[in-house]
Amino acid sequence: MSNRIDEKFKQLKAQNKKALITYIAAGDGGLDLTEKAVLEMEKNGADIIEIGVPFSDPIAEGKVIQEASLRSLRDHHTTLKAVFAMVEKLRKQTDMPLLLMLYANTIFRSGTDAFFDKCREVGIDGVIVPDLPFEEHDEFQEAAERNAVYNISLVTPASTGRIEKIASAAQGFLYCVSSVGVTGMRDKFSTDFDAFFSEIAKYSKIPYCVGFGIRNGEAAQKMGSYCDGVIVGSAVVNQIGEYQQEALPHVAALCQELRRGLDKA
């Protein structure tokens, strides 16, 4: 079965472009706003979108996404079912790759098989599960594969000695975490990127993209130069957090800036 993620990277490669992957916290400001923001991001240069399903205890997130998650749950009572319904509506309007970023318990609790069946049904191309390391990938692998949904693998600067095994089993794209710690915008990085990415390049057979801490066009350009794309989360979520229902022009402007930066990389 083909997957929109593979198609997208093939297409980008042919155009000699890098992937701009953005993240949005589903239901922050309501799911109607999320739906509009996804389309707005696509219109303004995003190639792939990660839709974050809110969780009560997001242990891998920094303050910005933690608070967005909380607003989504507290103010809008966002459910997985409602997120799937939104994706179903989005699928009628776009053919871009859509991923869900969510914690293991959200999948497990909804029934692993039923969850991945639903992903295929509504047109989800991949999942990113921050609390599912390589050692536990088996938990969801069979159900994901049966539905042609990629379970995206992550490597971090603390993955010394693990990159080979993770990269060789990865599907779709490899998510390279720029620095240790939690998600969030950073002013500077302490990672030795040359060493980190040369290790990744050695083992990755699929595109690899970098995320965590990329806040603007300048950072997108710098980080994009190391790999096949950049992933921007907290900077987008921050715009929605600040402007809520009026956020779309701000989100659009940010995506344009990121796109310009990335195109220079």
């Binding site: 242990i59 891998a60 293991a104 921050p130 609390d131 599912l132 390391p133 390589f134 050692e135 536990e136 990938h137 088996d138 938990e139 992550l154 490597v155 971090t156 603390a158 993955s159 010394t160 000695g161 693990r162 993770i166 975490v177 240790v180 710690g181």
Partner: peptide, 23 residues
């Protein structure tokens, strides 16, 4: 893949990749 640190089906190592080497 081996299922280490299990008590029946319970247990495991469901943590972010960043802390896996530390674990």
């Amino acid at each position: 893949m081996s299922k280490i640190g299990r008590f029946g089906d319970f247990g495991g190592q469901y943590v972010p990749e960043t802390v896996m080497n530390a674990v």
